[in-house]
Amino acid sequence: MRRMSALSPAPPLSGPAQERARRARLRLTDLRASRTLTVLAWIGAAVIVITMGSVGFQVIRGASEAIGRFGPLFAFHAAWIPNLNKLGGLSYLYGSLVTSLVSLVFATILGVSIGIFLALLAPRPVANVIGPLVEMLAAIPTVVLGLIGIIVISPFSAHTLEPLFHGVLGWTGLFGAPAQNGASLFTASLVLTIMVLPIISALSRDIFRTVPQELRDGAEALGATRWEMIRGVVLPTTVSGITGACVLGFARAMGEAIAVTQVVGNASLIHANLFFPGTTLASAIANQFESPQNSLTESALYYLALILLIVGVLTSIVSRRIISRGAKLT
């Protein structure tokens, strides 16, 4: 900046001198732009580091009281009785894992099918309409999805899906007698499925599109049907990418708070029956943080956040590993 102000009064000359001045000015602009960009880039990088660091620090500091009191076994105690200072995160962890896994199963089946359809089967015009629609699904605010969950999915789940599953798969113990109002882990899983679906379908569509036409032709030239080609060539070559997409979807489901809180019932119970109300790490934090009963409870909520953070970081690392290993193979 200092140098720039020293040079700025450029002599208004004509001919070669003016040309020189113009070049000097250009060099100066170039220099300034490049300096600014470098500084911005460094600031951006610093912001990321500071944010990550401060999130970790704040969460750990907030949780320190609970960590001191309960130790690492906090995650494996189910009781959550703030009045008696008996606090454990297991029911929350359980609810998070169950809703995320169930939604992941639904969303993987649907999302991969949508990806196959959009990338390999649908005629171009159809894919050009449905593809953006899938991406728009991701843009729906989660609160709105939660409302849809309350108004549409809960009753549908309580009156239609849950009796159906209970009738067919009740013997597994996972699908017990339906709860009355539809607020359950199962309903939360359905809402999460809608949220995870666009991630998995858009990513898997893009991944399927990377399978070279030559490979697909090669399979078809060997007398394979479309389905055999997909099963034998497309899916095996993309399995790692698809797995990575699923892990990303899982992380998304783990982290969702609002929409889940709206439909999950918020009861810190551990029950194999998916049709019972439950709770999750994220929804507990969103739900209880406003008015914790005492400082230990507040600290325990931080502890829940820490668990969520650790699970999130782990899934992120795992998905990166899977994706990069897949990239090496193909």
Partner: peptide
């Protein structure tokens, strides 16, 4: 056409082995 291709094999310009 699946039956046609089973009887009439093809080798392409660019080698295209499956990643298997």
């Amino acid at each position: 056409r699946v039956e046609v291709r089973r009887r009439i094999g093809m080798v392409f310009q660019k080698p295209n082995p499956f990643p298997k």
